[in-house]
Amino acid sequence: MTAAFAVSGLCKRYPEFALQDVDLSLPEGQVMGLVGVNGAGKTTLLRLLTGLAAPDAGSIEVLGHRLPEAQVAAKRDIGFASEDMRLYRGRSLDWHIELVRRIYPAWDHAYASELIRRFDLRPAQPLGGYSHGQRVKALLLLCLSRRPRLLLLDEPTTGLDPVARAEVLETLADVLRDEGRSVLFSSHNTHDVERLADSIAFLHQGRLVAHADKERFLDNWRRVLCLGGGAAEVSGWPELAQVRAAGSQVEIKVRAWSEDLPQRLSAAGLSVQRVDPMALEDIFVTAVRTGGAA
């Protein structure tokens, strides 16, 4: 399977921040969610993937093009929308559509019209009169209607009200049904990522903390509640991300679950009371705090 993008040993340094030694790839047709707190390096990584920024070290290949050298060719097949990207307030959506349509030959006019209806946008109105949610939808429309092979979305749902967020997520879910299209979207909202992504990458302080298929993430991580006094004995086990004791009760967060783990915990003096799957948000917080891998 060819890669929509592949980065290796990627580093980018700014005075206050550095993205360090990132190795990551996305097979074509897959959806990857990039999760991280503000300042984790998500925007920097997306800028590098669009050729807007040049790496200090490492290599970037997007849709077979080496970046940033071949950024023009790559950007013909990339749809990029970021939270800090704005359209011209004094101009209408129609004006923007005409501008973008003339640049991208694959512009899908019927799909653009459908998105205008679905998003309930007024194409002749200057964008200065649009709400934040409408502006985000307009930007997505301009990205999606050019039918890009790779969609890069930086915080697409940030700042949206619940209704607008649902509409945007539904549209993205529709887009993702097209198996030929690859998507990388960043968010600090793990619920959005859990809903849409095939694979997930956690970024924290410029480093890739964890990266795996969503199912593997959810299958591997467990929250185990035990009773007993063997917390100190098991805390060094590599498959356990976190062991916290409160009196006789011990909460264990497992990063590599296996069926024989309860037996081994019992042998170590811990009686397993219950085993629960973990939500992605909890996995993310634990992974970041412990610096652990999936």
Binding site: L52, Q71, V100
Partner: peptide, 17 residues
């Protein structure tokens, strides 16, 4: 200031273009 440059730079243009 109004962050429309990011939109222009996302189009298929190089820094020289």
């Amino acid at each position: 200031k109004e962050q429309t440059l990011a939109f222009v730079m996302s189009l298929p243009v190089s820094p020289l273009d």
